[in-house]
Amino acid sequence: MSFANQSASDLISLPIIHPDWEGVPAHVQGFSTTRAGGFSSAPYDDGQGGGGNNLGDHVGDSLASVVRNRERLNRFLPNDVTFLSQVHGTIVLDAATLAAGNVGDAVFTTRQNTVCAILTADCLPVLFSDGKARVVAAAHAGWRGLAAGVLQNTVTKMRAAGAADIIAWLGPAIGPDEFEVGQDVVDAFQLRTRTAEKFFKKKTEEGKYLADIYGLARYVLAKVGVDQVYGGDRCTVTEKGQFYSYRRDGVTGRMASLIWIAS
């Protein structure tokens, strides 16, 4: 994978995770950042005393640090990225017309060199491409958005824009052994289908469950005909040296997951 405008020192100092998927054309490019290799200080650092790559400007970090982190990220991209104002909802926007502050939790594009991006720190980032690189998308799927239909809405928007044979990658999120939820979360998914119960493991405490957000996402995607789903093997909570985690730390940074169609 090649990146625009990057230097050798940038490549060393910005650790990233590539989607491990098959069937996606080579000119579809994307990655997820980690918490390492930036300019942010604790508690937004890299977890080991070094600078953190926090990309969220709404979490209490120094704005100057966030700006530096975002400026360097943009050197890896064909065009500067515009981030959504995420609200755990189901709105899907077109990246070609996106403006700073637009509210939404997913973004798609058919245009070359237009970057789709979302921010997470335990919630599930999902990157999408169709098999012919006609449409790509990125979605932010916390449990509220996942239960309400953000992934279904993203797939619908992609198909309306010409996508077929959609492929998805589940980026770094909270793992199934760490995602403790209450009965309200179970009920939110059971409103759609009772077969979602298998993705919740009851704990000994009354009304407490461990939820498998990766399993829920695969289930939701399969219901709308997306069967090629990859990833889903990381845990933002337990991999402290790799990822920010709101569930683990409370005050923390945000990582980005990004995708675009290269020219």
Rank of each mutant, 00 (worst) to 15 (best):
D187T: 03
T204V: 10
S13M: 12
V92D: 13
G131Y: 02
F179P: 12
G38N: 00
Y219V: 08
E205N: 02
D184W: 15
S263T: 15
K198A: 07
R70N: 14
L93K: 13
Q112F: 14
R75M: 07
A100P: 15
Y244G: 07
R192N: 15
L119I: 06
G56H: 08
S65W: 04
R248E: 11
A147C: 03
A163G: 02
G47D: 10
A211W: 04
V251C: 13
L93W: 09
G89H: 11
F3Y: 14
A173L: 02
D105A: 07
G241S: 05
A148W: 01
A188Y: 03
F189V: 08
T238C: 12
T34S: 00
L258F: 09
G30N: 04
G149E: 04
I166T: 02
R192F: 14
L73N: 07
F243M: 07
R247D: 15
L191Y: 11
D57E: 11
L63T: 14
T154M: 05
G104V: 04
L151D: 00
D130I: 00
T252C: 14
C116S: 13
L73D: 07
V66H: 08
G60Q: 11
E178F: 05
H27S: 13
Q190L: 10
Y244W: 05
T110V: 12
Y214N: 11
S40I: 04
Q242T: 14
G225W: 10
D233G: 12
L73Q: 10
N113C: 05
I259Q: 11
G52P: 08
N69E: 07
S13C: 12
L93F: 10
V226R: 01
M1E: 15
F199R: 05
A36P: 09
S245H: 07
W260P: 06
V237P: 12
L14T: 13
S129C: 01
T204L: 11
R234Y: 12
V229S: 03
N5I: 06
V67P: 10
L216E: 09
R234G: 06
T120G: 04
